[in-house]
Every structure is written in C-alpha cells, then in structure tokens.
C-alpha cells in the first residue's frame, strides 16, 4: 500500500473504510518491510519523548543556549492553574506545551523533530492537550501520530518542510497542518475532514517567513509554535463543525511550496530579514557580515 498525494490517500481510506492512521501504518509496514509491533513500539518511544519535553518546562524553567527564551511555559501553566486563562483548557494547554517543547529544544534537551526541531512543539502540544482534556488513551494518541505523520509525509513528498527552502510556513505551517488533521481523527472526524483541517491551516499560515533572531532556533520560533497549535485547533474545530474547503490539501501543499520558493532568501532561515533585522534584534548582535 502506498500513496503520493492526499487524494490517493483519501481514495484508499474511502474504498477500504480505513482511517488515515490505519493507511499510514499499513504503508509503513509494506514499504519498509517491518511489523506493526515494531512501528507501534517506535512511535511509543517518540510519544514518550514528546510528553516529557512538553511537561518538564511547565514546572522547571530552562534557559536557552542563546539566552533569548526560557520560562514561558511555566508562566502559561501557572496562569492557567490560577484560572486566569481566557482561551479555555485545550487551547491554553496546547500553547503551553508547544512553547515548553521549544524551551527544551533550545536548551539542548531531547525532543522529536516533528517534522523539524524548530516546529517540534505543535504536534505534541495539541495532542497532549487533547489527551488530558478528553481522557484519550496513549494507544489512540499513537494513532493520532500516524495520522499526523501522513500529512507531514505528503508535505515532504510533494513540497518541503525545511525553513531554508520554504520559510516558516513549511515548518510550523506543516506541523500545524499535521496536528489539525490528527486532532480531527482523534475527535471522530472522517479522513476527508482531516484533510480539510490540514488544508485550512496551510491556507491560514501561508507566506509565513523564517526569520530567526541571531539565527537561532529560539525567537520568534517558540511564539510561532504556540500560534501554530492554536491555528491547528481552530482549523480542526471548523472541520469537525462540518465546514468544507474549496481548495483541497494537495493544491494547498503545492501552493505553499510555490509561495515558499518565491520568498526572498532573506526570509528563509538566513536571519537577514523580518524579525531578525528589527532594531531590537540587531541590538543583540555582535555585528553583521
């Protein structure tokens, strides 16, 4: 079993009555001559790392290597525990965890690139928030990760997930599309609704540039992981409510790639544009070359 496009994936799902996660598992077993036990085990290991990286900084703040971030997840967590959060439990937790993972990442902690290190907070953030708020089992979350993996695979196969090639829309944008699709499957949506949610995210984050201050994976990366998580939940909610999208996922992936390649290199991880060249960012720098 294999697919190269979202439409092919949906055809398999609809003709065989399978979910996206089931098809992705079957593809992995067929393509890499492995077993279901093996891939489930590997995904459980990934989920364990994701959870730890999402939770640890909510209790203990860690300073990043570059010194630009640290402690944000703890602040958000305390804000929510005090009942002062204005966005509800799921969104509040999702953005807390998304920022937490980036804190771990920026301090040389252990994370799972999903799909990249710079965008590694979104998928665990959204899934852990849903798990806690809706009492979802680890086994079901593992399914969610295979679903997310299918969307990320489509982006890697047909476009890019590298900020240096496609900007932040290719990193946090794709991560958020993955999370949105996984959220829809976990909350009972159909495969097609999963792709509507993914398509919505790519549309809403289209054109987002990669402009890391000092060239480091810290700021605004961490903020954008939080925004990506909220974007993913927005799109999932819309899709689960029955809102359809006129632009299918395959077209949005092509569209994102097309926009990405047309971004000036200044806006693709070179730290020569956007936030990276604001006066405040430049003031931190020891000198431009």
């Amino acid at each position: 079993m294999d697919f190269k496009k979202a439409e092919e994936l949906l055809e398999i799902c609809e003709s065989k009555g399978m979910t996206i996660s089931e098809v992705m598992k079957r593809r992995e077993i067929d393509q890499f001559e492995t077993t279901e036990d093996e891939i489930i085990y590997k995904m459980q290991q990934a989920w364990k790392i994701m959870k730890e990286s999402a939770q640890t900084p909510t209790k203990n703040a860690v300073k990043s290597m570059g010194g630009l971030i640290g402690g944000e997840a703890k602040k958000l967590n305390e804000h929510r525990i005090k009942g002062k959060n204005i966005v509800g439990g799921v969104v509040s937790k999702a953005i807390t965890y998304a920022m937490a993972v980036l804190e771990v990442n920026a301090s040389m902690g252990l994370i799972v690139a999903s799909p990249t290190a710079g965008s590694s907070g979104v998928v665990p953030g959204v899934l852990l928030a849903l798990q806690e708020e809706y009492k979802i089992s680890d086994d079901r979350v593992i399914d969610g990760l295979f679903n997310a993996g299918a969307i990320g695979y489509l982006a890697m196969q047909n476009a890019t997930v590298a900020g240096a090639v496609g900007g932040c829309q290719a990193e946090v944008g794709v991560a958020s599309a993955m999370a949105a699709s996984a959220a829809v499957e976990l909350m009972g949506g159909t495969p097609r609704q999963c792709t509507y949610a993914a398509s919505t995210v790519l549309m809403n984050m289209l054109g987002l540039i990669c402009d890391p201050v000092l060239g480091l994976v810290e700021y605004p990366c961490q903020n954008r992981n939080a925004a990506g998580a909220a974007n993913a939940l927005t799109a999932a909610e819309m899709s689960l409510a029955g809102i359809t999208q006129m632009i299918p996922l395959d077209e949005m992936i092509d569209c994102m790639y097309n926009v990405g390649r047309r971004l000036s290199v200044d806006f693709r991880e070179t730290a020569k544009g956007g936030c990276a060249v604001t006066p405040s960012a430049c003031a931190l720098c020891k000198g431009c070359k």
């Binding site: 294999d2 992705m24 593809r27 992995e28 393509q31 890499f32 891939i39 590997k42 995904m43 290991q45 990934a46 790392i49 990043s64 290597m65 771990v104 990442n105 920026a106 301090s107 040389m108 902690g109 252990l110 994370i111 799972v112 690139a113 999903s114 799909p115 990249t116 290190a117 710079g118 590694s120 998928v123 990760l145 295979f146 997310a148 993996g149 299918a150 990320g152 695979y153 890697m156 196969q157 997930v161 240096a164 993955m178 480091l216 994976v217 810290e218």
Partner: peptide, 23 residues
C-alpha cells in the same frame, strides 16, 4: 529511499536544530 513516518516524526534528537545539531 522512500520517506518513512519516522522521517516525519523524527529523528529523536538533542536540540536545537536538526541540521545544526542532529546532522
């Protein structure tokens, strides 16, 4: 080689950058 789900959700790595640290 074909792209694996663990190329998407992976590598499991010490941060902060897949290209600057893991690679």
């Amino acid at each position: 080689a074909s792209i694996s789900v663990f190329d998407v959700l992976g590598p499991n790595m010490i941060g902060p950058s897949s290209s600057h640290t893991a690679g």
